[in-house]
Nucleic acid binder design. Structure first.
Lengths: 130, 130
DNA sequence: ACCTCATTACGAAATATTTCGTAGAACTTC
DNA sequence: GAAGTTCTACGAAATATTTCGTAATGAGGT
């Protein structure tokens, strides 16, 4: 059994929870409403389903439930990355990376940061076969 | 209007077409069957829908139709990348790249290749504001 | 012409996801 | 404590995707 990736609607909820911390349905719904029209019960339902799926946990001690994510943002990012890597890039991380950095508007600061990161990675591979 | 990404089943078809070139339904279905059980008419239906959507074009001059993709692999990769970037990485390419290269088993050769690519990118940014 | 086989067309079932209406419970206010 | 508000639960409709059965068509062989 491999990890499953959240759906689009689920990911929107998770993004709010990761940046704002544990939240109520109303708080999530208000954040999402800034981007697009979405009914309160729609958000509620999504979050209830996510709870059943084990994506969220909720504190029911007060009438207004407070939800929090059960998975770390970075873990979810990795799972989604891996899926994209395998489904669209034939497993080649370098192709994916070059596509990400390619024609677009990555800033010099970002490129520098990545280079630094890359140097670290290469440093760790010192003893390995060429 | 932003570009839409192919579904999972559609992407599997596209991957075969990109590597094998224009193909018949049977050829695609045989390739897919190596990975998982999938009925012939299932593959046929997916490809017919893709044709209606404008993802594929087909040559009907012989009874056995020959399909080919209408979008380049790299364009599709970019579209899917952008979607992941925005939906899961808050638009930060560097976070995505570091996640892609992070704990996993990217080879030294790949890392070297990326570094070379990165140096080119930085070279192109020479005149820009720090 | 007849039979067989491969192919396409079509519709519909099965599954997954997203959306929302309605009901009832719990709290607030007057 | 009645009226109004906010919340959860639940079911179901709407939409999207995937799967496949059946029928019709065409091609090839006998």
């Amino acid at each position: 059994m491999s990890k499953s990736t959240p759906t689009d609607a689920e990911l929107e909820v998770l993004n709010v929870l990761w940046t704002k911390g544990p939240s109520t349905v109303r708080e999530i719904n208000e954040m999402l409403s800034r981007e697009k029209e979405v009914g309160y019960t729609t958000t509620l339902k999504i979050m209830q389903i996510m709870t059943v799926k084990g994506l969220l946990e909720r504190d029911e001690s007060s009438r207004t439930h407070v939800y929090k994510p059960l998975m770390k943002e970075s873990d979810t990012q990795r799972t989604m990355m891996d899926k994209l890597l395998n489904s669209a890039f034939g497993g080649s991380a370098s192709k994916l990376v070059m596509q990400a950095l390619g024609n677009n508007k990555t800033t010099k600061a970002e490129l520098d940061e990545i280079r630094k990161f890359l140097d670290d990675q290469l440093e760790n591979k010192k003893g390995e076969r060429e």
